[in-house]
Computed example of a mutant assay.
Amino acid sequence: MDVLLRAIAAAPDAAAPAAPTMRTLAAVTTDLVQESCRRHGLHGLEAIALGRALTAGCLLTTLTKSANERLRVDARSFTDLRGSGGSDGEPGGFLIDAHGDGTVRGCLRRGFGDTPLRATLERASGRLPLSPFLGRRGALTVTRDFDLSAGTDSRYQGTVELVAGEVDLDLEHYLNTSEQVPSLLRCEVLLDGHGGVVRAAGILCQTLPGGDHEALAPLRERLAGEALATLLLLPREPAELLRFALGGAVFEPVAETPLAFRCNCGPSVARDIVAMLGADDVEALAGEREVTEVRCSYCGERYLLTAAELRELAAELRLHRS
């Protein structure tokens, strides 16, 4: 079962027990990443990119410990290859929508094609770079809705430039610069010989207010390179991930949250999306085909609207407009 563990810990190199100075989190996300990749038909580097992003979303939506918290990540990037006339390369990036109740959904802005899959299978167990395919140039926007049930505006939004073209490193950069919380974020996805997801997990460590940001240095060194990927060669529980990151130092568990893939799309949402076209365009669409398909970008689910349903929708829109 996918689960996120929250804990607090003292500095790993403390000579004696001390007051907690770090907020530490670890998440095992294998099932939800497998489900999301299955729905999108993703393998290889595409699965790694989406899996790291989904895992990061689960870790980041923990600031208030409220089930009503919502976090959205919008990464827009361009590959290093320039287009004709010196224009930006092919656009890419990803979208993540995560909630404090442990549910998450997401999608890539574009696929990588078949070539990265073949290259991926040669080193399916190590830390594989995403920057050549996601792109190093672009921007990352994170929006936090701290309490969706609150009557007041409780939204915070921050945007940073991409610095690495790697999902976790760019989100770590966001935490350090926009939210100004010294942070370490590492997410990893392991594949089998066919490019399918075998395991997925991630670790987030942050210094508490008044803590020394240098306390993250030994963790950063311990999780460098392929360390997390190597650790995940065997099934791991979140507590094992934290023990590794902290070098065996004692930590105090605070709470566990079950994690799962979930999308809130449905027939009514699909109908609302088509309604945004306006009455005239909806009616024109009804005249072009007997059935119109609406596909959810987050989960791949398809919804069908008949020509009769579209004409009924157009009539409703005109009625409301008048």
Rank of each mutant, 00 (worst) to 15 (best):
R72Y: 09
P132I: 07
G93Q: 04
S268H: 13
G165Y: 08
H99R: 15
A139F: 13
G93A: 05
R243F: 01
A119V: 12
G266H: 10
T207A: 05
E226H: 14
D280H: 13
T115V: 12
R109C: 10
G202Y: 02
L25E: 05
V33R: 01
S322C: 07
V282R: 03
G278F: 03
D2S: 07
L246I: 07
V160A: 14
L95A: 14
A26H: 00
R243S: 13
A227V: 13
A19R: 13
C37E: 07
H40N: 11
S149K: 15
R220V: 03
P238I: 00
S183A: 15
D281M: 13
L233H: 11
P116W: 11
D2V: 04
D153E: 14
R110G: 05
A14F: 05
C296P: 09
A9Q: 01
T29W: 00
R155G: 02
A75S: 05
E179S: 13
R38M: 02
A249H: 07
S268Q: 15
D2Q: 05
E69V: 00
C107K: 01
R271D: 05
L162R: 04
E309V: 08
G195C: 10
D212G: 06
R236K: 14
A249R: 04
L232A: 00
E301R: 14
M276C: 12
E172W: 04
S131Y: 11
R236Y: 01
R295Y: 02
L108G: 07
R23E: 11
S131H: 10
A9G: 02
L134K: 01
E90C: 07
A224Y: 08
C265K: 08
L148H: 06
E293N: 11
F261E: 02
L228M: 13
P258Q: 10
P132R: 10
T79E: 09
R271T: 08
H173S: 14
V269W: 14
A124Y: 12
R155Q: 09
E316N: 03
R70W: 04
D145R: 04
E214R: 15
R23G: 06
A245W: 00
T55M: 07
P91V: 12
S322A: 13
A224M: 09
A217C: 10
A217V: 13
P17D: 09
D80A: 15
G202S: 03
E69R: 01
L277M: 14
L130P: 05
S36G: 12
T62I: 04
E179Q: 13
S178M: 07
V3R: 03
T306M: 04
V294A: 10
G151N: 10
R127H: 15
V294T: 03
R289H: 08
K65I: 03
R236F: 02
Y156E: 04
G135L: 08
A239F: 01
L63M: 14
G41E: 10
L5H: 07
R70F: 01
L184Q: 06
L5A: 02
A18G: 11
E226I: 01
R127M: 13
L5R: 01
L130M: 09
L234R: 00
E166G: 07
F94Q: 02
V167A: 10
D88Q: 14
A217L: 12
A18V: 09
A255V: 02
A279V: 04
